[in-house]
Simulated assay, not measured.
Amino acid sequence: MTEEIIIAGFGGQGVLSMGKILAYSGVMQDQEVTWFPSYGPEMRGGTANVSVIISDTRISSPILHEFDTAIILNQQSMDKFEKTVKPGGVLLYDPNGIVNPPTRTDINIYKIEGTKIAADLGNVKTFNMVVLGAYLKAKPIVKMESIRKGLEKSLPERHHKLIPLNLEAIEAGQEKLEAVNEVSV
Rank of each mutant, 00 (worst) to 15 (best):
54 I>T: 08
59 I>S: 08
9 G>C: 12
185 V>G: 02
19 G>V: 08
180 V>W: 03
20 K>D: 14
108 N>P: 07
34 T>S: 13
14 G>N: 08
76 Q>C: 06
11 G>L: 02
48 A>R: 07
144 M>R: 13
46 G>Y: 09
34 T>F: 07
73 L>Y: 04
28 M>V: 04
132 L>G: 04
155 L>F: 15
38 S>L: 02
147 I>C: 00
7 I>G: 01
185 V>F: 11
136 L>C: 09
153 K>Q: 12
171 E>L: 05
89 G>C: 03
78 M>G: 07
158 R>W: 05
155 L>H: 06
16 L>W: 03
123 N>H: 06
108 N>I: 11
107 I>P: 00
159 H>S: 15
121 L>S: 10
50 V>S: 05
22 L>K: 06
147 I>G: 00
150 G>T: 07
151 L>C: 07
93 Y>A: 06
40 G>W: 10
10 F>V: 12
168 E>G: 03
61 S>I: 06
48 A>M: 12
166 N>S: 07
45 G>P: 01
111 K>W: 09
78 M>L: 15
10 F>C: 09
33 V>Q: 08
69 T>M: 10
20 K>I: 11
79 D>C: 05
88 G>W: 07
66 E>F: 08
44 R>S: 06
32 E>R: 02
97 G>A: 03
81 F>V: 06
9 G>I: 09
25 S>F: 01
179 A>Q: 03
80 K>A: 13
50 V>A: 09
142 V>C: 02
129 M>V: 10
132 L>F: 04
172 A>E: 10
137 K>Q: 14
125 K>T: 15
129 M>G: 03
116 K>I: 15
104 R>D: 08
164 P>M: 03
114 G>A: 09
4 E>Y: 04
150 G>N: 12
149 K>Q: 12
41 P>W: 03
132 L>M: 14
1 M>L: 11
130 V>Q: 03
181 N>G: 05
53 I>E: 01
10 F>Y: 15
129 M>W: 01
15 V>I: 15
98 I>K: 06
71 I>P: 00
164 P>Y: 07
27 V>M: 14
181 N>V: 10
150 G>Q: 08
133 G>P: 07
104 R>A: 04
77 S>M: 04
121 L>G: 11
94 D>P: 14
78 M>Q: 09
54 I>Y: 00
96 N>Y: 08
138 A>C: 09
94 D>W: 07
29 Q>K: 12
111 K>G: 00
46 G>M: 06
23 A>Y: 05
67 F>L: 01
15 V>A: 02
24 Y>K: 14
40 G>D: 09
178 E>K: 13
125 K>E: 09
150 G>V: 11
122 G>D: 04
55 S>M: 05
94 D>H: 09
147 I>H: 02
130 V>W: 00
127 F>T: 13
79 D>H: 08
64 L>A: 06
69 T>C: 06
150 G>H: 09
122 G>P: 05
144 M>N: 10
124 V>E: 11
75 Q>I: 07
88 G>V: 05
6 I>C: 04
154 S>A: 15
11 G>T: 10
150 G>W: 11
113 E>R: 14
6 I>W: 00
96 N>Q: 14
